[in-house]
Design a protein around this nucleic acid. Sequence first.
DNA 1: GTGATTGCAAACCTTTTGCACGCCA
DNA 2: TGGCGTGCAAAAGGTTTGCAATCAC
Lengths: 156, 156
Amino acid sequence: MADVKHSAGRQDSFAGLCREHNLKITPQRTAIYGLLKGCTDHPSADYVYRQIRQEFPNISFETVNRTLLTFAAIGLIAIVESTAGVRRFDPDMESHHHIHCIRCGTIIDFRHEGFDGIAVPESLSEKYSIIGKRVVLHVICPRCRQQEAAGMQPPG
Amino acid sequence: MADVKHSAGRQDSFAGLCREHNLKITPQRTAIYGLLKGCTDHPSADYVYRQIRQEFPNISFETVNRTLLTFAAIGLIAIVESTAGVRRFDPDMESHHHIHCIRCGTIIDFRHEGFDGIAVPESLSEKYSIIGKRVVLHVICPRCRQQEAAGMQPPG
DNA sequence: GTGATTGCAAACCTTTTGCACGCCA
DNA sequence: TGGCGTGCAAAAGGTTTGCAATCAC
């Protein structure tokens, strides 16, 4: 599975990142991380909970949810955008792209013709009916950056 | 505000699309659409509700929510992905892109080096701290396409 | 030993559904 | 006039919080 390969100088192992952030290595966390690493899709907290219960019948949903949020906070996993749950509506039906602040969650539209024309690989356009495409930039917006600079404190 | 300009042959006026789909033009729908068109961000149903109540004190949240979903269904507005509410977690922290089926909501990862290298306009990278970027393809997946073909029926 | 973590329970928030009345076409 | 659309109420689905007991370090 060509696992840890792109570490690129950053400690991206479970144990390492936990130590870095003073998180204890608990059986629950270990199990949740292990399960996640075996997922190729984007499981919800509920899915992880139901899976992990087969191994840890006593684990609670709250632990799973908190653990996932913790993992995301330390950069061990990512939270992907989806259209489930709380929905956001966009009155702009023209092709445009998004700037997504990963701190405050704000999404800002922008247009950039250079992005409109990117070519979709044939292997994909053969299999899927391409309706549209969008570039999403994950950023920290000026306001959040300021707040971070102001309230700068070690993550512990 | 350079409004209706790119109609591109498609009937994208509120009244036109409503007629096309046999939806009645009610004051509520008109007001909701008008409010949306003035939004440059991506309001939630709750935000729209609170705004619209200043004009229609008697409108209910359910009407707002249903109307928004209806608008999205007929292609008058779009639903954008967000990380609010129901979350999906991604154990894959390497740069990758997403195929998002707009029917079933499934999100599939894919890698494509051609997408990794797209250049962010300087005007943006100056203002925002770019953490990463991702191309999201909006598609109809083979399974949903089959179902559509099978159950083909007019939207009325 | 100590403080972080867990599991329980309840609160909280948003979305969805059923139904009777009212309004648009 | 007929049937869709609305508003009310309640349910449903998911997330978050407070706290005492427990466990990793």
